[in-house]
Simulated scan of single mutants.
Amino acid sequence: MKIETRHIIKGVIFGITTAVGLASNIVIMLALSSIAYKEKKLMPSETILFTLTGANLLLLFSLGLPHSLFAFGVKYFYTDLDCKFDGHFLRSSRVMIIGLTCLLSCFQGVTLASSNPTWAVIKAKMQKYLSLLIAFIIILSTVSSLSSALYPIVSSNSTDLKHSIHLGYCISMYPNAFLFILIGMISFARDVFFVVLMAVASTYILLTLHRHRKQMKGKRSSEKRQENSAEEQAAKMVVTFVIIYVLLFGIENIIWFYQISGSDEGNAALTDTRFYLEFCFSTAFPFVLITFNKKVKCQLSCSLT
């Protein structure tokens, strides 16, 4: 079977991004596991990062990998049930990533504000119930994504694919335009809630860092060096995560709204771009983490020597 040049280019881009994402997230998971083994525990932010790494891997396996292989004619979903499971894992892992990134940004914001007694109490509560918060996000992600398992099928004899999401290897066929838009809008509203919350938390983090920088202005260089504490590096890492995610989320949903408006729903290039943006954060995540997290960077350096 002859493969079109467009599919080869798509396969190479998707494949490289997916392979790099899978390898780097596995490395991060191993590094955090090693830290947990040596220190007998993980810090709250590290626990969130570990869970977030797992969600990244799930998204890359359920979206990036099958999409990359299908571009080269490789298909390993043969039944409707396979597609339903993949569709559910794909959506739920995406919601987990949004929710956990939001939780991470909120926790970091509360940590910076913990000099205030009220916020110190909230921080203590978040640390105490962190496992429950993570479990809630996982359950919410799983339950709220059940609709994604209702409509995927391997293929369709229908020529009308207007109200569908076409992955190539699987197709989500919605019965009508009402359900297609309703489910999409409910998912969008849920995701926007998390995105707005993480953006607010990150704005507070940026304002706090800016205020601290102004306070440090005019002090000796030896004192300035203390500014780059682990807490502030973690804050900068979280803000970077949020900026990347908000940008990708924004572009992805602009494309989605443009398509459901009927302007260009069948444009394969736009659809591929939207799917690609969905897992770009998962590939960028490990590199941002290594850049800002000295403990992980040190663990990786020690493992290589």
Rank of each mutant, 00 (worst) to 15 (best):
S172A: 15
L133C: 10
I183Y: 14
I171P: 00
Y129K: 01
L161V: 03
L167G: 11
P117T: 04
G168W: 00
K123T: 02
A135F: 05
F178Y: 13
S131A: 09
T159Y: 13
S144Y: 04
F193Y: 14
S141C: 03
L140H: 13
S202N: 07
V195F: 02
K123G: 02
I153D: 06
R213A: 15
S145E: 04
L182S: 13
S141R: 01
C170K: 12
Y129E: 06
C170P: 10
I134R: 00
Q127C: 13
L207V: 06
S141P: 10
N157M: 08
S158A: 14
S155T: 14
L182E: 09
V110I: 14
F193P: 06
I205C: 08
L161E: 01
D160Y: 01
G184L: 06
L150S: 10
I134C: 00
L140C: 08
Y204S: 06
I138N: 01
I153N: 03
A124H: 11
L140Y: 15
S148M: 15
I122Q: 10
L167E: 09
F188K: 11
V143R: 00
I205G: 01
G184H: 08
P175L: 03
K128C: 05
I165A: 05
L167A: 07
L207T: 08
S164H: 05
S114A: 15
L182M: 12
W119R: 08
I138E: 00
S158I: 09
T142H: 05
V200Y: 11
V196T: 07
V121G: 05
F188V: 11
H163Y: 15
H166D: 14
A201Y: 00
T111R: 12
S141L: 03
L140W: 09
A124C: 10
I181H: 04
R190S: 06
S141M: 09
L146H: 02
I134N: 00
S187A: 13
I205R: 04
A135H: 00
I138D: 00
T159M: 13
G109T: 12
L197G: 02
L179P: 04
S145M: 14
Y204G: 09
P152Q: 10
I134T: 00
L140K: 03
F178P: 00
P175W: 00
Q108K: 11
A199Y: 03
S156R: 11
S144D: 07
Y151C: 00
S172W: 05
K128W: 03
H212L: 14
I153C: 10
A113N: 09
S147W: 15
F180D: 12
Y169W: 15
S148D: 14
N157P: 05
N116P: 06
T203Y: 15
L197C: 05
A124I: 00
A124Y: 07
I183D: 12
M173S: 02
M198P: 07
F178L: 11
S202E: 07
V196Q: 01
S114D: 15
R213N: 15
K128L: 11
V196P: 03
N157W: 03
A149S: 12
N157Y: 05
V110Y: 00
L112C: 06
S172K: 07
F194V: 02
N116A: 09
S115Y: 04
I137D: 01
S158V: 08
A113D: 09
D160L: 04
K125L: 07
T118W: 12
S187D: 14
F180K: 07
V143L: 05
A113G: 01
D160I: 04
A177D: 11
A113Q: 12
Y129I: 03
A201T: 04
